[in-house]
Amino acid sequence: MTAMKKIEENLRKEAKRLLEGGEVSVVLAYGRGYDENHPMPFAARTVEDVDSLVFNEYCTFNLARYLPKYPPKTKIAVAVKAADSRAVVQLIQEEKVRREDLVILGIPVTGMKDQKTGEVIDNKTTCNMANPVLYDILLGDEIHGFKGGSPYDVLAELEGMDHDARMAFWKKEFEKCIRCFACRKACPMCYCDPCFMDASRPRWADKSPTPDGHLMYHLTRFYHLAGRCIDCGECSRACPVDIPLYLFHKKLAKECEDMFQQAAGMKIEDKPAMVNYGNQDSDEMLK
């Protein structure tokens, strides 16, 4: 039995147990889509639903995205891969969900595949960790000795450019934007209601899709995710026009780790970096 199949089996077993015993009222995991390579996020609420749960290498979704929409005190079991578990930790830090309401089903896995291209998702677009950082039940065997390379390697090319070239790069990428907001909607950390882009007073950016509005939208969204982005890569996978948003998020994650000595979503006791300050902070960071 392959590792993926074993995870699927354990997922169904645990989901059934949790729902039967009334420990949780919903299990957030993956279900069948219109074909094998296109599973869907699925919320199992009854024991019968459990048969529809699946897990394979295309189950890339970050289910933490659905957590904040449940009413407070709903008992939820959520299946998480490594990056997804960081999102859960970050949401707990930000008090959007409570630890005691969650049963975290950890999935240790590598080699997930992009649904659009079929390529293996690696450190180029994600944090590329193998094991969840926080879980109650592990659905597979912990992975040891996995070396996926630094998630920040991919930044070298952009960091090496001069300012003009970088501006040209981003202008070209942002020009593709169609303002469908799939990036912010797929993001587990984008839960604001309303989003600053939907506010009419002040109107931060043009309502119509102008390049200037794109710049405002994306830069501000990058700022809002600084120190919070857990590098799951969902925004870039969700983008129908393939804007490499992960590059900017990675850059800010890297800078924030350097400046604040804290990576997003790693420890439940941490305070989110941007609503905090440290004794070690110095004016060096403003240089």
Binding site: H163, W170, L252, M274, D283
Partner: peptide, 30 residues
């Protein structure tokens, strides 16, 4: 830093503005 009228306002501001600076720079602003 340390002299903020509200105690800690500028300590938060320092982090916010530091990130802002990184964003501007990575976007290509001088």
């Amino acid at each position: 830093p340390g002299d903020c009228h509200y105690g800690t306002g500028n300590l938060y501001a320092r982090r916010k503005l530091a990130v802002t600076k990184k964003i501007l720079e990575f976007a290509g602003m001088e």
